[in-house]
Design a binder for these strands. Structure first.
Lengths: 105, 105
DNA sequence: CATGAATATGTCAGATTTGACATATTCGTT
DNA sequence: AACGAATATGTCAAATCTGACATATTCATG
């Protein structure tokens, strides 16, 4: 955001901050969430690539449609374990997992 | 193992197999465990590099010495989440995490 | 715009993971 | 060998995660 715009907003009483500041995330929390979101995006991409519905994928994973939805949303109640195991279940290799994480955000 | 040695053992009544066959691990379970072990080794290496005791690291992570020990042992009751968050807490970046996983086993 | 299929959201009992503690074992030093 | 420091192992109540279900919302297509 440019400095002028920010000053205009602040003059009107807005507080201008970054998401991390607002949510008070530490760097490690930020990194952790980034990784989860990275994997959840990959999960969705792969499912759509395979033309599977969330229900169909859930059946493969022995999970449920609602949990797949939450996985793809990167919901806080979804563990990295579940995301990673799901990706492996879809045929992803550890090397491919490494490539996912290597992507710059 | 060479074929002769294997045949000798089998003649004596031993069953020669791979760990996966013996434990009946699916490929995705194998991959998941491999990743966990990879990260646990990295955790130990980094801790030792920093000359920290398990107790000292536990204090940093707001965890306990016994849990750090279990993390480094790759124990089944330790989640990927805990391992990854611990590494991030030690200053590892997502890119460095990717490099860890890219290592061939 | 209706209707059905896909996806999202909320909830919860059961399963798993957690830090903490006690105690055992290993390891380096004297 | 004896000591202390570090690490390992076992256990458990509390916290977190899970699949399942009900229901709401979104989306495509006639």
């Amino acid at each position: 955001m440019d400095k002028n715009k920010q000053q205009q907003l602040e003059a009107k009483g807005w507080v201008v901050t970054t998401p991390e500041e607002f949510l008070e995330l530490t760097p490690e929390e930020t990194a952790y969430i980034e990784v989860k979101l990275l994997l959840s995006r990959n999960l969705r991409e792969r499912r759509e690539m395979l033309n599977l519905s969330q229900q169909a994928l859930a059946d493969m994973l022995e999970s449920s449609q609602s949990r797949v939805s939450k996985m793809e949303a990167g919901a806080p109640t979804v563990s990295l374990d579940l995301l990673v195991r799901s990706l492996f279940h879809m045929g992803v290799t550890p090397t491919e997992l490494a490539d996912m994480l290597a992507v710059k955000t």
